[in-house]
Design a protein around this nucleic acid. Structure first.
Lengths: 350, 350
DNA sequence: CGCAAGCGTGAGAGCGCTCTCACAGAGGAC
DNA sequence: GTCCTCTGTGAGAGCGCTCTCACGCTTGCG
């Protein structure tokens, strides 16, 4: 590491200096700064004055050294490309996390490893105890990170239900319920041949949305039918491809539930090209309520997710795990909301 | 701060322990770990063996305390809402920054202040010297942050050209050139009554794209015409509103250059509702090449920006400023690329 | 052969903080 | 008056690291 005369920057005041100004010992200043009750009121006041006057701000490194806490938590985003670049999921989530952390004077360290070597470096960094807690986002089934960091004993919270059963706390959005509500809405509109374009089978969001779709059909006493199920990877292209496959085998389809808005948009383009009218011939429902949903024509009915809330809740759980010695696993499931638009208008009852 | 028995986690090895195992002094281990050349080869090897064997990882807090460097840089995103939630700009930028930092063992601390009180806390935190450098993103004209941190003497780099002249280094995308290329493309397609829907006047991206539009018209010897200029805030709704105003005053418009894809999408919906065919009657070009551009029908011609590159370059500049004592201002402008799609197909020459 | 110069290494100080322990003084019980 | 408890404060150690300085050894030169 090159050291470039960092002394040139104005040094902040130290505890020692505050103590001198206030006419007390370093220990007393420390007590005041950290809110210990064992300080008399007049001493407290004079220390506070000195702190104010000198613009004293505690040195985090020195504090860390003795407390063995870093005052920071890591957010790890291990998304190859897909979702990261296609919808505003992560900014919203990060904003929620940031908001949830800001009350606690915990810094948010963002890690976005690219490739296996980088992931390895990230794992090493995290295991080294440089952070007090970890938020894991967008986990895929085979991610080695949860094992690594739980072996290192660092508290962590997962965003999205982990596919492999685990003792980690997590916050998830009710993917199953969201998918159900979408399909129930299609059923209520008089649709009976409802296809789905699912997400990746190695992500809980993909798996659970498919499960919700099947549940809703089962509840309506409609048989499960593999020929109505197709899968994509949340991207528009994969949605188009899936829709083409569906149309080839099931030209009688009268509704499609896509597990992402982008896939829904891809499907809509294919349907249109095939001469199907939306929603008259085929109703379409998406997932995410992303900007795309209000951009496509007809506008897309979609399942809206409380993403900021999810981030906020993840931060809350992590803070609790870091501060408390309470090792209880918590699972928080947040509800979704169906936003009805033109793409799924019900059939006119003749 | 509540201290919750952090000792329960396995402590890592210290320099002292490595020194004992390797049979050398603490100082020598430090030299090896920090790559000093003043160590003989055999001593170096035995130290490296000991480091390996003990799984030694330097304690950042202890190092920070003496070097007065934190080993981290802050990325500050001060975006109220608009762009943050509408397109994948920030994830891409963050990925680029993260990649640019990863070679340097610098951690990325993400700050997303919400509201004035939070901004104040952020400013205090940054000025306190808890980070070695700062990346400022999406600055608006009246942001107090640049002044605050430059007074505190912390190196920083701005993403996007600062509106107020400043001595800070910045990385920008060639908004002016991008807008020019869009308008030149429309001119080349035979359009002559070209309107624009600009961005906010307090952001350089808004200002510069408008300037590029005007330049291209001037170069083609077309007169500047305020009635062809309307403005939005980058959102779809604002694009629709602006298009309605334009149609009301200039029904003869035959092309529109919008300063964002979302505004372009909003404009397209209004044009369609007004019975204008795209691109036959009115050609449309957007900006950002966001997912929306390939979702709308007809697909939207748009200006693609090298966003990851921008993040990468910002990181490079900041690293140079942090490591070097070289205080030279640098301005980096990255080129754009026009992605031609159906929305701006040229008129058939009769 | 003497001496300066250079190289590799170790000893030790000290970065700014927290926290344990000791202690002075006040107050109460006997 | 003695003993005890309790409260507020200070002294001092020490967290793990870097960096300066000193020192012994090897070279090279006159």
């Amino acid at each position: 590491m090159t050291i470039s005369d960092p002394q040139s920057r104005p040094r902040g005041a130290t505890l020692e200096e505050v103590a001198k100004v206030a006419g007390v010992s370093r220990a007393t200043v420390s007590r005041v700064v950290n809110g210990s009750p064992r300080v008399s009121d007049d001493v407290r006041r004079s220390v506070e004055t000195a702190v104010e006057q000198l613009g004293y701000i505690p040195n985090r490194a020195a504090r860390s050294l003795v407390t063995r806490r870093s005052g920071s938590v890591a957010v790890v985003i291990t998304e190859p490309t897909g979702r990261l670049f296609s919808d505003p999921f992560f900014p919203r989530l990060l904003r929620g996390i940031s908001g949830g952390l800001s009350t606690r004077d915990l810094q948010l360290i963002l890690l976005m490893p690219e490739g296996p070597a980088d992931t390895e470096r990230t794992a090493t960094y995290l295991s080294a105890g440089h952070v007090d807690g970890i938020l894991l986002v967008s986990l895929h089934g085979d991610d080695p990170l949860p094992d690594r960091i739980s072996r290192a004993g660092i508290p962590f919270v997962v965003g999205g239900r982990p596919l492999r059963t685990s003792t980690a706390s997590f916050v998830d959005i009710d993917n199953r319920g969201g998918a159900r509500s979408a399909v129930e809405h299609l059923l209520a509109g008089g649709r009976r041949t409802i296809a789905t374009i699912g997400g990746p089978a190695d992500m809980s969001a993909g798996v659970d949305r498919l499960a919700g779709y099947r549940e809703a059909l089962a509840d309506a006493a409609l048989p499960a039918d593999p020929s109505l199920e197709s899968a994509g990877d949340f991207t528009q292209e994969s949605g188009s491809a899936a829709m083409e496959r569906l149309l080839a085998t099931r030209p009688d389809v009268d509704a499609v539930f896509a597990a992402s808005d982008l896939m829904a948009a891809g499907a809509m383009a294919v349907l249109e090209a095939a001469g199907r009218r939306i929603p008259q011939d085929v109703a379409v429902v998406g997932y995410d309520d992303s900007p795309v949903a209000s951009t496509v024509r007809p506008r897309l009915t979609s399942v809206r997710q409380p993403i900021e809330e999810m981030g906020h809740e993840m931060a809350r759980l992590l803070v609790a795990a870091v501060e408390g010695s309470d090792p209880v696993q918590r699972r928080v499931i947040l509800a979704t909301e169906l936003v009805r638009r033109a793409s799924s208008a019900g059939r006119r009852v003749p």
